[in-house]
């Protein structure tokens, strides 16, 4: 792996909240063990439609990856799994409370993270953290880390891309610690550092002559 000054850790799954204690924002993480994929259709079916999870927690693991693999199914029913890349996580917010209750997840992996508010309200009480994928295009590296497709669930109803894939992984990563057990966010920390520079970059630029409806919350604004 690329040399870097950043700290690197390898976590054996399943993890307990205790195992996550020392993890600082921006630490590089690799995983070994059981994970499962689940994105919007899974959340919808499990929670909105009340289906629950299709398998016992022990079988799915407690690491939920917001992703779908580039995969196909061979004629003999075996899996051809190439790469895996995360999907943007911010859209899962509305399900999180119920999702943590149902899945008991300790780690959620995805793209782009969520807000520190969300971490404090939903992750912290459950002793869970968020890991972000890197790039985010590191699909081939992640694909390499998948040692076995254990099984898939809801493939017929949800399609290959939205189904649950249960995966055994080894040296699976890299990921970065985006939220810690106190609910801090790496992205927010970075955005705060960048903000003053942005201020300067905007100087001398010119706001558009015609504003767009929606660029103000005051619906009585004369937008021309």
């Amino acid at each position: 792996m690329a040399n870097t000054k950043l700290k690197t850790v390898r976590l054996q799954l399943p993890v307990s909240t205790d195992d996550l204690k020392g993890l600082e924002l921006g630490t590089i993480v690799y995983l070994d063990g059981r994970i499962f994929t689940g994105r919007e259709s899974v959340y919808k079916k499990a929670l909105d439609e009340g289906a629950g999870l299709p398998a016992p927690l022990g079988e799915l693991g407690t690491v939920n990856f917001h992703c779908s693999p580039a995969a196909s199914i061979n004629a003999d029913g075996s899996y051809n799994l190439g790469a895996v890349t995360a999907t943007a996580s911010f859209r899962f917010k509305k399900w999180l409370k119920a999702w943590f209750e149902l899945s008991q997840c300790k780690i959620i992996i995805g793209k782009g993270g969520m807000t520190s508010d969300i971490y404090r309200n939903f992750f912290v009480p459950n002793g869970a953290i968020y890991l972000t994928t890197v790039g985010y295009g590191t699909g081939a590296l992640l694909g390499r880390g998948i040692k076995r497709v254990v099984t898939t669930y809801w493939r017929e109803e949800l399609g290959l891309a939205q189904a649950i894939w249960v995966l055994d992984v080894e040296n699976f990563g890299p990921f970065l610690v985006e939220s810690d057990l106190n609910g801090n966010s790496l992205f927010e920390r970075e955005n705060a550092k960048i903000a003053p520079r942005l201020q300067a970059a905007y100087e001398g630029t010119r706001p558009a002559t015609m504003a767009r409806y929606g660029e103000t919350d005051d619906k009585t604004d004369e937008l021309i």
Partner: peptide, 12 residues
């Protein structure tokens, strides 16, 4: 890795 393994570079 993508080139060596002949796998898609990004799964999206």
């Amino acid at each position: 890795a993508a080139k060596e393994d002949r796998r898609a570079m990004c799964a999206d």
